[in-house]
Design a protein around this nucleic acid. Structure first.
Length: 206
DNA sequence: ACCATTTGACCGAG
DNA sequence: CTCGGTCAAATGGT
């Protein structure tokens, strides 16, 4: 019963945080003002949370290789087994997601770490966007029923900004105790969201 | 060996 | 048909 509470609170907090972040960014913009701005976050946007910037994927678009001889594919063994057809459709899946904008310092390197472990399960190019969108899911999905997922997409105009969308709730204890609550109930979430626009000030392109 | 990541294919909705 | 999202096999790294 009270379970929903946490989620609601979390959502609220998240929203507040979002607002703060936005305000921060806005402030930064205002601060610089004058002339070209272009993100000058040379320290202004003190990001509280991003401590770990690990440069990992420099993004090399050049995918070498290109699947060399792997001809093993050919249609032979593929075929999907209809595993899930259970029938009960989840009502189009509840889609409540929080959008958070993370600005990485001039360097694109750095993946913003929110404290949870994510496993990438897909990447797709979205029409209209210059960069592909990555899909992540909690590593404990099977272990703790954490069906939380995250989507990350780079801004087309500002490669320094990453748009992170969180979908679902975290049930995993990620590092803290092990699954103390065996409750696996799936709570229905209602959409209470109303945030519609969040557009940031579009910066003038050069 | 395991696990995270990569890539292609499949699927559902519009 | 197209677009977006997820899964599943293959691969690499530890």
């Amino acid at each position: 019963m009270e379970n929903g509470w946490s989620w609601e609170q979390k959502t609220l907090i998240t929203e507040i945080i979002q607002g703060m972040e936005l305000a921060k960014q806005l402030r930064a913009h205002l601060n610089t003002t004058s002339s070209v701005e272009t993100r000058d976050m040379g320290g202004s946007t003190g990001q509280p949370q991003n401590a770990g910037f690990s440069a990992g994927v420099p993004e090399s678009p050049i995918s070498i290789n290109g699947s060399p001889g792997s001809d093993g594919f050919d249609g032979s063994v593929k075929d999907n087994q209809g595993y899930n057809e259970a029938s009960k459709k989840r009502k189009t899946t509840p889609r409540c997601a929080d959008q958070v904008r993370v600005s990485t310092e001039n360097g694109l390197e750095g993946q913003y770490d929110d404290g949870y472990s994510w496993r990438k399960y897909g990447q797709k190019d979205i029409l209209g966007t210059k960069y592909p969108r990555s899909y992540y899911r909690c590593t404990h999905r099977n272990s703790q029923n954490c069906w939380a997922t995250k989507q990350v997409q780079r801004s087309d105009e500002d490669p320094t900004v990453f748009e992170i969308k969180y979908r679902g709730t975290h049930n995993c204890a990620h590092g803290n105790q092990s699954i103390p609550s065996p409750e696996e109930q799936e709570k229905k979430q209602k959409n209470t969201n109303n945030n519609s626009q969040q557009q940031q000030s579009q910066q003038a392109l050069f």
